[in-house]
Design a binder for these strands. Structure first.
Lengths: 335, 335
DNA sequence: TTGAAAGCGCTAACAG
DNA sequence: CTGTTAGCGCTTTCAA
């Protein structure tokens, strides 16, 4: 079963290859009758243009690279779905790359994406040292939109969530309910820092002093948060409330608390970042800062697509807002 | 910043393009000194072969398509990670396609993947009517491995979990603990049918009669399981135990049960399919049939890669086993 | 409006 | 072992 090429279609329709190409890319005008003949040929022969050839010729086409840290984090599942639904509409494909927050993998994937001549990139940047590589790729003519985290740098399109405010409202809520020793567990990434800032801001605006013994930096895993929580609770005067900076860390904290028989919210209040389908079914239904994950992905793709179509467009920064969903873990609702 | 081509490298190294190509693909032997010169040129010029060109010429290369139903199901997150880790080792990229179990999307994506000349496909098939399309693509020379579900058809490589046994052991466990009216909620996909079979098998082997009023078919969502559970519990004589056929459905069931103040395991025992990180933190820690999700993905890629390298290899069917993890929801442990 | 011709960057046959 | 040559399938000038 030989592959059908544009040549076959041309022959069948009795036109030149260029004409076939023209009707398929409907840019320049083609005689209606010829066009019709071509379409018939395309259909009867079930012709699908070879994308590799097209890409080689056009130097780019219809593939977007996606660099995220780890697909197993359910946060990304939803984001990607938002991206994909939009991408599907425009017939663009997504190449998935897990970077594990590792510079070496990012670098490697970036090179590959460049070699692929992808038409754009959606990336969750990790460390500041990615900046230069990212700029290089961008300078090479590949549009990039930064998602979730955006570095401190300008001159990239960015779609992100207002982490500072999200964290601020969460911690403020705790403060309003008279919790005073509020612990925080956050990872060393930009979103983590921002959530810490929101935490600090809430403290300040309530006249509560910042106590570094309540602050725990941790990794990206449940286990690492489990350990951090244990450290926090083992102190002389442990926190009376806890704010965890993402869904995985929340799970780790709950595990640690459960194992130490510390009850939520009776012994400690808890608010987590990220809403998830299981948040309502946890042993204490979780109060959360909910992020518009799907929307995040959707906006990222829309922005990228705009830039692809119009490379000279001014850089955009889209901020999405979070919402505080109050359930039982923060202790202000009767359980 | 013009792109560096193989020609530039050739010039710089003072050899022909073919020689450069040869050292980069290290198939035929090249004089050591020339090879060294080429490598220097490659490095100093920071040359990366254009993958589109390479693919056009070789008619396939280093891209594998991934057709799954919905990335938001955390089951797939883990599977994909297993795939990706292996793929990364072989420098192959993954194109992600969400099909939503919709034939039209599957068909569409399959065509695109064909046009892309991907070197292989890993697909979670949905309905039997996919079979012919899949065969066509395969006949076209694109290796396919079927994952999670495998249709009843032969002549595909398949990697799947032993659903029948997994379900059997779960339901058997319930039966051993004297539950007699065991409900089941499952979706209309192959894995669902198989889990139903395991359920039936356990019933038979314990001499318990099959009661269709305890059997609920549902969709793929939490909500749909929520409804199914309500129907089940609204009956004259509701089940005293429940088996839910995947992680999303389990969540839906727990939600329905909680809202009706039906306690787990006091009023009803529950075992779900799929272990998840949050299973331990649910309001009743969940007894589950745990699937080797990461391994599933890993084996899928390994098998696909073998077939790509050796198209004439006999078709493989790899079965992975599940394990029953007993926690509190099935009621046999003191809580 | 259409066709002929050139060439995107690469690899593989074929000579040498 | 190496270079020359000929395309892979497509789009895009350039003429007609």
């Amino acid at each position: 079963m030989r592959k059908v090429t544009i040549q076959d279609v041309a022959q069948y329709a009795n036109v030149s290859r260029s004409t076939v190409s023209r009707v398929l890319n409907n840019n320049s005008s083609v005689d209606a009758e010829l066009a019709a003949r071509v379409m018939v040929a395309v259909r009867t022969l079930d012709y699908h243009p070879n994308r590799a050839a097209r890409r080689l010729r056009k130097q780019t086409e219809d593939v977007v690279g996606l660099l995220i840290s780890d697909i197993r984090n359910p946060f990304f599942g939803s984001v990607i779905r938002g991206i994909e639904d939009e991408a599907y509409k425009q017939h663009v494909n997504l190449v998935l790359c897990n970077t594990d927050e590792a510079s070496s993998k990012i670098q490697n994937y970036l090179q590959v994406m460049q070699a692929e001549r992808v038409s754009g990139l959606i990336v969750v940047p990790t460390h500041d040292d990615n900046h230069d590589i990212l700029r290089e790729v961008q300078a090479d003519g590949i549009p990039i939109v930064l998602i979730d985290r955006s570095l401190t740098y300008e001159s990239f399109d960015r779609v992100k969530v207002d982490n500072i405010n999200g964290a601020f409202h969460a911690v403020n809520h705790l403060l309003e309910h008279k919790y005073r020793r509020i612990g925080i567990i956050y990872p060393e990434v930009e979103t983590g820092y921002e959530r810490l800032q929101g935490y600090q801001k809430a403290l300040r605006s309530n006249g509560v002093e910042y106590d570094s013994s309540l602050v725990e930096v941790c990794g990206y895993t449940i286990d690492s948060s489990h350990e951090a929580t244990k450290r926090l609770m083992a102190q002389e005067s442990p926190p009376d409330a806890l704010f965890t900076a993402n869904n995985l860390l929340t799970l780790g904290a709950m595990r640690a608390l459960r194992m130490s028989n510390i009850r939520i919210p009776q012994d400690i209040a808890l608010i987590g970042f990220d809403d998830m389908p299981w948040a309502t079914e946890l042993y204490t239904p979780l109060t959360v800062v909910s992020q518009p994950t799907y929307e995040l992905g959707k906006q990222a793709f829309v922005t990228l697509y705009q830039r692809i179509k119009n490379p000279k467009m001014a850089y955009q920064s889209i901020f999405l807002t979070t919402s505080l969903i109050i359930r039982e873990s923060c202790g202000c609702l009767p359980s």
